[in-house]
Design a protein around this nucleic acid. Structure first.
Lengths: 235, 235
DNA sequence: GCAAAAGTGTTCGTAATACACCCATGC
DNA sequence: GCATGGGTGTATTACGAACACTTTTGC
């Protein structure tokens, strides 16, 4: 059978908003764009969708090619299709966001790929409408994290409660009572306490926990409250 | 400046999943596809994105062209990009879902546009991967409706509490205690009681309510519980 | 011994749940 | 007068919020 004649074909790209957490602030991974226009300016990880790959495959490939990251949490966010968003030629971009354990890849990323982590607040200007993508991604992460345990994807396999709380406080830009926080979190049954302490953060040391993967997968879609007063936060 | 040479251009379409509520069940609006392949088979409202329009514009245009619907709730759902989803030629489809007051357009739609409402459970087979789109849309609506008052978009300007409860019970496939339901709903401050009754559903008649649009817009993004035990429902 | 962070329990108020009867009307 | 659906109140429970002191240990 024939093709759909008369219809316009358009360029299709994928852009990945990659978040990491260094224990202090949320970070964004950017790269210096390798081609015109906007060559050498900071950009999200992006690339064109190839003829034989799905969108999920494209986003995973681009992530791997530009950062070496593989097997990380990656989710489709939104598709941006403003006719003028790319000044050279109309390009539709399917945006994905990723959550990664920053420490796992920190050195490799900067050494091999010339990508750099920026604190969300201090990130440089990025190209086209990518700032809009980042804002939407931040919003989506907050929204989802208020209900589902996605933020664990930003932490290493072993982490402490203070670290976890720090992450939540940082994402939601709030402070949480540590007694209530630990109660809430432990009540989910998602965590396994280890017989080992992290002595880095304090003299006394804080117990390490790890995810109970069984419960994690089982309860991932359930609604659970990890933060107090979700309404009061800018969701 | 030049174009991005060497990159493949792809067809880009928009498909709209249109939901309505007739007081009994959730319904889906389908149309007989007007061109090959799958000509005359049931399909979502779809069309190709034109060179000069954004995705939102495209979805609104397609909705208007195929159904006459205008100014309805329309939201981007997900983008489907499997290389083989359209057998003729690779086509990326950005799916949108719409919520409409079925009565407002019922006659017009079937008379002028040869579109038809189908009960979700009794809908015919639709083309390509559109069933997947519908499933995702149902899921998204449930998810969103559990937290935000979007289901009002499915009701006429004046509606009764029993009608509203019916809608929620239908969307979540559950039963709700009417005393608790009315308490919850009225507590949001979203409804204004009218001095008028709907006598169609019962001899005594049920009071009409309308949305307090001020509060509706203000609280739309807030988290609110409209259904008991969201966890227990298949979200 | 002191500074700094970790860990832990109780009280209180609010919100969700379960539950049953009367009301208005058309026939 | 009776059948049908509409409307309302209360008692109990569970959960989230507020809140302060003790523990450990490196210096």
């Amino acid at each position: 059978m024939q093709k759909y004649s008369k219809q316009t074909r358009l360029l299709l790209a994928v852009d990945c908003i990659i978040f990491g957490f260094d224990g202090e602030t949320l970070k964004l991974l950017l790269i210096k764009r390798g081609f015109q226009p906007e060559k050498n300016n900071w950009s999200l990880m992006g690339g064109f969708v190839q003829p034989d790959e799905s969108l999920d495959q494209a986003s995973n490939r681009i992530l791997k090619q530009l950062t070496g990251l593989e097997g990380v949490y990656l989710e489709q966010l939104h598709t941006f299709g403003n006719p003028l968003r790319d000044p050279i030629e109309r390009t539709i971009s399917v945006a994905y966001f990723a959550l990664v354990d920053i420490h796992k890849y920190e050195k490799q990323i900067s050494a091999d790929y010339h990508a750099e982590w920026f604190s969300l607040k201090r990130a440089p200007k990025i190209i086209f409408d990518q700032q809009e993508m980042v804002e939407l991604a931040k919003q989506r992460i907050r929204y989802k994290a208020a209900l589902h345990p996605i933020l664990f994807e930003l932490l290493p396999g072993k982490f402490t409660l203070p670290q976890l709380q720090n992450l939540y406080e940082c994402v939601f830009n709030t402070t949480i009572d540590k007694r209530n926080f630990s109660k809430r979190v432990l009540a989910t049954g998602l965590l396994i306490k280890l017989n080992e302490k992290d002595k880095a953060g304090s003299k006394r040391g804080a117990y390490y926990y790890q995810l109970n993967m069984q419960n994690y997968y089982a309860k991932f879609q359930a609604f659970m409250n990890f933060i107090p007063n979700p309404d009061s936060i800018g969701l």
